[in-house]
Design a binder for these strands. Sequence first.
DNA 1: TCCTAAATCAAAT
DNA 2: ATTTGATTTAGGA
Length: 280
Amino acid sequence: MPRPSRESYGDQKPPYSYISLTAMAIWSSPEKMLPLSDIYRFITERFPYYRRNTQRWQNSLRHNLSFNDCFIKIPRRPDRPGKGAYWALHPAALDMFENGSLLRRRKRFKLMKTDKDRLENELAALANINRFMFAPPQPALPDTTSAAAASQLVHQSPVANRPVTGTTVSSSQVQRPKRSFTIESLISPDKPSAETEDDLTSVPVTTAPPVAFLYNPIAVTAPSPCYGGLVHPTSYMHPSLVMGLVQPHPGFYPQHPIQAEHPGAPVSSVFRFSPTLRSV
DNA sequence: TCCTAAATCAAAT
DNA sequence: ATTTGATTTAGGA
């Protein structure tokens, strides 16, 4: 007999809030993160009720994504183009339904402003690094440690890690002499110079960082074959926001291999230069 | 009934 | 596609 083998509620509205539906969709994915379009699909495929009035509920859904801190937007990797960013669950929000109700939580999941700002910076930094990794090829730098090696490594993506210039991150331009990128300068334990701290977000990006990109390691169970990596020191948020070095990078490579079991573990000062990559 | 999360409508980026 | 605001609806203690 025609029976919706699914866990379908037929045309009745499922007893789930948009937040729980979205969380389900995200959590059901291998990488624990999905673009908006896939969230829509997950819902419409399972719940016939949502095959109607799409304009209405999808607008509400989107409203939820950006309004609730439990959802974080992760920039799409340039080598995997598509529309929109990926949406993931904030690790600290994984238990937001512990009270049992998928209709209404006891309290909203909200981050303190300070945490929200940190998250914002981190994502900016990662997106920034992401850009470098996939920056269009350019004449080699005298000092580029691994431009050549970089292009022959991972995947089939056209990778080039040459400096991107003229990519201004913020308003207040800061004139500074370009100097060659050196591992030493990035991992050196000494303080990032007086002016650094407060001006990180307003410096033109001019230096090539190590080849890296971000992914969502919340789903990683073991060091990924093609990425060595370092857990971002300020990866307060996503156990998952991990910087994956695409290839062994002199001076950087696995000071601390990715350990899915210990995500977010503080590492070195390698990423001291974030949130904005700057000439050093 | 009260509190406030969630849904809705919709304008602005 | 995202973010934000205003307003209404409704879960559940």
